[in-house]
Design a protein around this nucleic acid. Structure first.
Lengths: 138, 138
DNA sequence: TTAAGTGCAAATTATTTGCAGTAAG
DNA sequence: CTTACTGCAAATAATTTGCACTTAA
């Protein structure tokens, strides 16, 4: 039988050992309820939650997104100095950043390969390599 | 004969058609006076200017960095949601971001090659491809 | 002379935090 | 019960802006 959005949200929280509170469940459902990955800002998720049944305060949206990141459920993506973006997809992959609409989407990663990545300096390790393809209207 | 820091700053401003005011010259000298490229934040440049002879107000540092970017003399690099970084080097090149010290440096670019970059979506063009190698203590 | 640039202080924006109340285990 | 979570409002941090003053051209 079909997996429901609520189930997906519940399992997602459980997989990270996070308490399934009403608010977290509501946000989890909005984020992973359909099994797709999603890119949000605190504001955009807050707006989403406001039009859905379960209201969540903006401060809690912020705190919850941070909690999800710390729990390893999401990643923060830095593309715009003035806002924080969050991505439910956890593997390393390139992004399109649409400069006119300030939207963030996944870039098709299949073909992308980074060759000759420089070694990390002494005593340092590469934590992650971010690739952001900035798009403007042609 | 040797090129002075002041000369470099003056020419740098002139090349972009910017008025060489006392403050801009002071900042230009700090940025390109030694012919090296440099990564700064508004605060770090403000701190630098405070220890040098010519004082510049923080607001002017912000406005001036913006002006330099618009004039095509610098680029903004987004690596940390909470601060803006500015780079005097204008060609496309990868960066190291030192997560513990919040420092930004150039990564050796010679060997780096990005293969199979996805096409820009319809009606869009690739404005820039940012590559940030995030480093943490090993 | 005059438009552009500067400095301050006040305003704005995104985000975090303190704390009293609420709910999960 | 007890500790973690939530919501609000106030606090903070980075950056921008309004406006009177100064200066380069």
């Amino acid at each position: 039988m079909a997996v429901t959005a609520r189930q997906r949200g519940t399992e997602w929280l459980a997989s990270a050992g996070l308490r399934p509170t009403r608010q977290r469940l509501a946000l989890a459902e909005l984020l992973v309820g359909d099994g797709e990955n999603r890119h949000v800002t605190a504001e955009s998720l807050y707006a989403l939650s406001s039009t859905s049944g379960e209201k969540v305060s903006l401060a809690t949206v912020y705190n919850t997104l941070r909690a999800f990141c710390e729990a390893g459920l999401m990643n923060e993506v830095v593309v715009d100095g003035s806002k924080s973006y969050f991505d439910t997809r956890m593997d390393e992959h390139p992004h399109f950043y649409w400069e006119d609409s300030h939207a963030l989407t996944d870039a098709p990663a299949e073909t992308l390969r980074i060759e000759g990545l420089p070694d990390a300096p002494d005593g340092m390790a590469v934590a992650r390599v971010d690739v952001v393809i900035r798009l403007r209207r042609a």
